[in-house]
Write a protein that binds this DNA or RNA. Structure first.
Lengths: 122, 122
DNA sequence: TTAATTAGTTACAAAAAGTAACTATTATTA
DNA sequence: TAATAATAGTTACTTTTTGTAACTAATTAA
């Protein structure tokens, strides 16, 4: 059985900085996970509850990738039932003020228009 | 024939601001398009060339969505061959400084580790 | 002996993104 | 006259990413 969990990257030979950034946070969940981990350490299950629309599978994959990139820290305790705690690294914390600005930016963008329209063409 | 182009949104009833933000820019290309449109107006084909890994199909879909959300402006000229120019709105421009911070943040994150590892388990 | 607890994993399904060929319109070229 | 070029998309199809629901292992408590 073979499972691949590495996200496929956008080729970026000329090292475009925004493409590089998107190779790190250009997906639905990474930023949300960072935001929820702000100022606290959370167990896997707590994260799954707080980010209630994420699936455990995707949460697990994202956390692995984020750990690999040095955005989150994973501490595993040899207990039963298992306990695994996730927290932000310095790098992860450094992302927070940027995410807060993003939140402010998006405040008056309305998504209802898209939500209600059906976007069908015949 | 029916084509749906509306992106599916993360449900966000408690109006989590970061979830809202991710419903707008939580994908591979939106931020890259904004970044490339900084300080200039570009035609569809020019965008496709400058963002060379994006497909015309996805570029087209993204631009529609971004126009709908008020991030880009689309100007179409009745010429042959057609000319369509895209530029940032105020809202789009407001995103730029945030993207620049993101670029700075991501500068010393190395993706090679993920690239080279195979992530296979048996 | 059975249920409860927790951090994942697994096989499968749906959605998003990628590919290559195609369309319509008019001007230019052969 | 007919074929070619140019441009902004679209189309049918394939691959990748994300989502769903059920499952596992290990130990404690009932």
């Amino acid at each position: 059985m073979v499972t691949n969990m590495g996200r496929k990257l956008i080729e970026n030979h000329n090292e475009c900085p925004i493409t590089h950034s998107m190779n790190i946070i250009g997906n639905k969940w990474t930023s949300i996970i960072v935001y929820v981990l702000a100022n606290r350490k959370l167990r896997f299950g707590e994260l799954a509850i707080r980010i209630d629309k994420i699936s455990r599978k995707v949460l697990s994959n994202q956390l692995k990738e984020m750990e690999l990139r040095g955005i989150v820290n994973r501490e595993s305790y040899a207990e039963t039932p298992p306990r695994v705690e996730y927290s932000l690294t310095k790098k992860g914390e450094d992302l927070l003020p940027i995410l807060n600005q993003l939140c402010a930016w998006s405040k008056n963008i309305d998504l209802e228009a898209v939500d209600e329209k059906d976007f069908t063409v015949s």
